[in-house]
Design a protein around this nucleic acid. Structure first.
Length: 649
RNA sequence: GGGCGCGUAGCUCAGCUGGACAGAGCAUCUGCCUUCUAAGCAGAGGGUCGCAGGUUCGAGUCCUGCCGCGCCUACCA
């Protein structure tokens, strides 16, 4: 809605510039005035012209504004400050247009976007760092969809890597378990927690007994070959934990379209194909001397600006096994449809909403699968510590001559989640004097430190449940449980989204468990309040009026003359703009901030202005409509954030 | 050493392509529940935007140089 008016203003100003000054190369930008009392939009063009024309901006602004004819949707223009042209919208026109339609503007583009996120090693329970990844990825995918793009969400399962091998070593050598015994354990509750501890024990064992690293090598080899006890055990572990991760993420509304597995990358010879390509086109070479002797290496010059120091990146180890990066290059090629091969697929689980999650398979399945891959754009949601490896992957594409795809391979990076010193101490992690003074402490998953995702969600649900029980003791228990879960999920998702991507989160348990101020529940509460108004109105036996027939443009203009009403409506109408802007900058936090500010505006309105008890009929109708419009806009925004609105709070 | 990122209120963080007097939440203090639920609202105090230059009509935002901090720089991912 707003962007249509913006376009008209830009066109009108551009035309005026052309006709009056003969200027065609000045892009007309629009800003939001600092103060709402200045109007809804501001044109700073006079400042840019001042230099060229060598005249004071204020004078130019006056001249410019005077020559602009009437613009649809604009009530008037004012010259302000030392050269701004402030725009006042025609409020009646605006409100009326929103009442008529007010659909979200989209920017559809051809081609499919792949968003890859979560990507947790299937060897232990998920932790809060993984939650940040998944929430960012899931929200970004929702943002893209809301903006009209076609999106496919992938979650890569590294089921043949070192981390899984380490847990295999643990079961095999520290626990003396067979694949069959592990299978029984895997069927029990909290297998991911059990592996979390075992993984930490294995890591500690390596430290004490470095010779045990040979076990890892052997396991890794066996897994890559796909045969023997270790390989079988690896599959059991990885599959069970993959399902545990899906269950964890399901709790906060996250799901996937397809899970490409590393084992298929190997067994279907994706890697072998990519390897041949890389060799053929000279992207990697065999090292015969130096510390990388016997390895296939990508030269540092390929991915680093000044290639002075680096020795390049090992793609194939001297024992013949391929590194993660190598497999990732094959995978990235497949995503763009450049490998000339495809996986087989089988349905893995059906989500409660009917959505099917597919997983790759190494032989044809019975059910026909949708087409996966063949994207025109790929976002890899991976933390910033791995930017070096992402650079290598992209360099691989470039070295193979896929310039365009390399440019469309986007590392959607974000900073790590560390712990606040206070929370670290609460978890029993010993801190040095120095650490306790720092704003945050990085913890080691290898040592079994950190906050498990499910533990955090459990705590959030408990906290929410206490509040819900206190407020609604009469409600059925099952319903209270569901409400508490929605609040917990909202709190968690908002917490992970309120920080911009490259802020290190110092995770503080108390802060995360807070439901006041800038939090998910605050925003959910505003939506619940709006719903309550409409529900209470209906309970009084009154039917919601046919707004479009009762409220005409003049009534809109009359009501929107009140500043508070106008500001709330204006804010609510900007939801689609906020999402599109956030897509453009790749910053989900902007959507979260918008939702919070909109909720704030509504809460003020809610406090100041009773809707149902309004005496004046026209105003009451208007307020009901505005409440409903606000509700729809906030709920749609929350949906983009993956946050649901509880029945009550 | 090199690469990436960060440094804004006591704390945690926003600040869109440079724009009109620097924002939010938390914490502290003061008020407001007989009204559509106070997970709320209103208000107060609190900042030489790390430092120094530069570009510009205009710099928290761009450039350069320092200072401090973090991450990466594996035949782990």
């Amino acid at each position: 809605m707003l962007s249509q008016i913006e376009r008209r203003i830009q066109e009108a100003v551009a035309a005026r510039l052309r006709e009056h000054y003969g200027i065609e190369d000045l892009p007309v930008t629009l800003e939001q005035p600092r103060e709402v009392s200045f109007g809804e939009l501001a044109v700073p063009a006079a400042f840019q012209l001042a230099r060229r024309l060598r005249r004071p901006p204020r004078e130019i602004a006056a001249e410019l504004a005077a020559g602009l004819g009437p613009i649809e949707g604009v009530a008037r223009l004012e010259v302000a400050g030392n050269g701004y042209i402030n725009v006042r919208l025609d409020r009646g026109h605006y409100g009326w247009a929103l009442l008529q339609g007010g659909e979200w503007e989209k920017e559809p583009r051809p081609g499919k976007v792949i968003v890859e996120h979560t990507n947790i090693n299937p060897n232990k329970a998920a932790h809060i760092g993984h939650l940040r990844n998944a929430v960012l990825g899931d929200t970004f995918a929702r943002m893209l969809r809301a903006a009209g793009r076609q999106v496919e969400v992938q979650n890569y399962i590294d089921n043949t890597g070192v981390q899984v091998a380490d847990v295999v070593v643990g079961f095999l050598h520290l626990e003396g378990k067979s694949a069959r015994e592990v299978e029984r354990l895997a069927a029990a509750e909290r297998f991911d927690y059990l592996c979390w501890d075992l993984y930490a024990r294995v890591s500690a064992y390596y430290k004490e007994h470095p010779e045990a690293l040979a076990w890892r090598q052997a396991a890794l080899h066996a897994i890559e070959e796909g045969e023997g006890e270790a390989a079988e055990m690896a599959h059991v572990i990885a599959d069970a934990i993959m399902l545990a991760h899906l269950a964890t993420m399901r709790r906060i509304g996250i799901t996937y379209d397809v899970l490409p597995r590393e084992s298929e990358i190997l067994h279907l010879r994706f890697w072998a194909t990519a390897f041949e390509l890389l060799k053929e086109r000279g992207a990697i070479h065999f090292e015969t001397s130096g510390k990388n002797a016997g390895c296939w290496v990508m030269p540092a010059a390929a991915f680093s600006e000044d290639s002075g120091e680096g020795d390049g990146k090992v793609i194939v180890r001297s024992d013949g096994t391929v590194t993660y990066v190598g497999k990732d290059i094959a995978y990235q090629l497949w995503k763009f449809g450049l490998l000339g091969k495809d996986f087989y697929y089988r349905p893995l689980v059906r989500e409660p909403d009917g959505h099917i999650v597919w997983v790759t398979a190494d032989e044809p399945g019975e059910e026909p699968a949708p087409e996966f891959g063949r994207a025109s754009e790929v976002y890899n949601v991976i933390d910033s510590r791995q930017s070096y490896l992402q650079d290598v992957v992209v360099a691989g594409l470039r070295a193979l001559g896929f310039e365009e795809q390399a440019a469309r391979s986007i590392h959607f990076s974000y900073e790590m989640v560390a712990l606040s010193p206070r929370t670290a101490v609460e978890l029993g992690i010993e801190l040095t004097e120095e650490d306790s003074r720092r704003p945050y402490v990085e913890v080691s998953g290898r040592k079994g430190q950190g906050v498990k995702a499910d533990d955090l969600i459990d705590k959030l649900v408990e906290t929410a449940r206490r509040e819900v029980d206190a407020r609604h003791p009469e409600a059925p228990a099952a319903e209270r449980a569901r409400v508490a879960e929605q609040i917990a999920a909202g709190a968690l998702r908002y917490f992970m989204l309120k920080f911009t991507r490259n802020a290190v989160i110092a995770f503080d348990l108390q802060e995360a468990l807070s439901f006041e101020g800038e939090t998910g529940p605050y925003v959910q509460y505003a939506a619940v309040r709006a719903r309550n108004i409409l529900r209470k109105y209906a309970e009084r036996g009154e039917r919601l009026p046919e707004f479009a027939s009762v409220l005409n443009r003049e009534a809109m203009a009359r009501q929107l003359a009140f500043e508070d009403f106008w500001q709330l409506l204006l804010a609510a109408s900007k939801a689609d703009t906020a999402v599109r802007r956030a897509v453009a900058t790749g910053e989900p936090a902007q959507v979260a901030k918008y939702a919070f500010q909109l909720a704030q505006a509504f809460n003020t309105f809610y406090h100041d202005c009773p809707v149902i008890h309004e005496q004046d009929a026209e105003r009451r109708t208007f307020l009901l409509w505005m409440t409903d419009y606000f509700r729809r806009q906030l709920e749609a925004t929350l949906a983009v954030l993956g946050i649901g609105v509880p029945e009550y709070m």
